[in-house]
Design a protein around this nucleic acid. Sequence first.
DNA 1: GCCGTTTTCGGCCCGACTGTTTTCAGTCG
Length: 570
Amino acid sequence: MKNQEVAKFLYEMADLLDILGVAWKPNAYRRAARTIEMLSEAIEDVYARGKTAALKDLPGVGDAIASKIEEYLKTGSVKELRALEKKVPKGVDEMMHVQGLGPKKAWRLYHELKIHNLQELEKAAKEHRISKLEGFGEKSESEILQSLGLHSAGQARRLLLTGLDTARELEKRLARFGTAIAAGSVRRRRETIGDIDILVSASKAKPVMDYFTTMPDVQRVLAKGDTKSTVILGNGMQADVRVLDEKLFGAALQYFTGSKDHNVKVRQIAIKKGYKLSEYGLVSRKTDRIIAAKTEEEVYRKLGLPYIEPELREDSGEIEAALKGRLPKLIGYDDLRGDCHMHTTWSDGENSTEDMVKAAIARGYDYVAITDHSKSTVIANGLDEKRVLKRIAEIDKLQKKYPQIAILKGSECDILKTGELDYKPAILKQLDVVIASVHASMKMNREDMTKRYLRAIDSGFVTAIGHPTGRLINSRQPFDFDLERVASAAAKAGVAFEINANPARLDLKDSHIRAASQLGARFLIDTDSHSADHLRLMELGIAQARRGWLEAKDVLNTLPRQKFLKAIQR
DNA sequence: GCCGTTTTCGGCCCGACTGTTTTCAGTCG
């Protein structure tokens, strides 16, 4: 899958064109890059299917970009990119990504001060050569130095859980001034969060600005204005606050929830209807009167659209579906009746089986599956056959003590290199839930890994494939395998895909969920908890399912106890 | 460079904040 590589070269083209002052093209390249970045199908498969004509079907890809993608896929590089790179030294591109510098300033620093890289930039700032340039001042100079410090510290996007927890803390603090809601990618529940955008509806903005910029954990104030401020928090996350009148809150929420691409499209609809849309409402261009602003529902309705859930707002077909009345009725955050993947002190969990059962009861679940590791995952103290049998006896006892919940005997059973499962049928037969996962030999080639999964599915013992792609966000690449083939086989065999709610996994990811469900696959949303506290992570898995357009009927563990037990019989 | 219910040319989302300015360009989201 070369999607990320292709997206990367398109982003590079965009940056370079930006620096050279070329108008509009950068936007076009970024739009195409975003499309390909989010695509679930491999770009080389799209190309193989229909050459450049198929590429041109992708939104934002036209003749020119299609042929550049073709060139990249065939030769591994693009002539025009190399030509641009000759015109623009690498350092200018680096400088452009320093906070406070954009293409224009980076270009001037290169030309007027002959700065070629970040080291020289730091040196020039320290020697006060930058403040002498027209349009730059002492502030810009110290701003650059501060940003460089952060730059080297690495400002990677943070996991959703971090963003969500931080956002909720800020919402709580700001609630004293009025309604406070985190918009942006947190509200859309993206798997990673760049910064946090909090909206506050309050009559007076100044007290909010003063409070927000002087909270004890503010590390640095990037901006403080009349209605908008930006800070860096102690945990390194950037947070924006914006104060708006209550009457405009819906329009503002719509605006700041994004995504950018979703908003561009919604705004185009507004323009066609003779309106303009901003955080100050849907406004008639002729009369300047506000058409809608108080609620998001109202804004969408006046544009001829039904309400679109934040998790869908990625311009990945939701607007077209909305226009046709074909939006999915997304699975709800309270729809799950059980959690089917968790570990205890029997393997590498931190709590006893009973603790986990009690925690599941506290969450109101109808069933819970205890799925410790199988014997091959030695590092996690996987259970051999003897211990599996002991564990089954333990669960029988617990079941008598806690009749209000079905305690399912399970295993997170390794799929060995060959595609065989880690236990023999005699053991597997005694288990209610088998989550089959790959934990070793993760770098197999595409064909072998695909066959490995297909063989596991064929065994007839598998309830669900656990964390199917094996990726760890920001740290491990996904396994290489043919998701479509595996999804089709799983759908046919009645094997579910897991949506693993662990914030570093979120595996399958949104676009894969959507692709697999279109092939008829069904899902199990699980936490993979290694402690009782982890059961709360379920909401992240549900969010991911919603981003993958799933309805309750697509997810097995929305079923009530008896129906669920029937559905997982093998 | 892309795109089309104002369609093959001429738009392309829209506004806040900052610094260095005396009216605005650049950057950001």
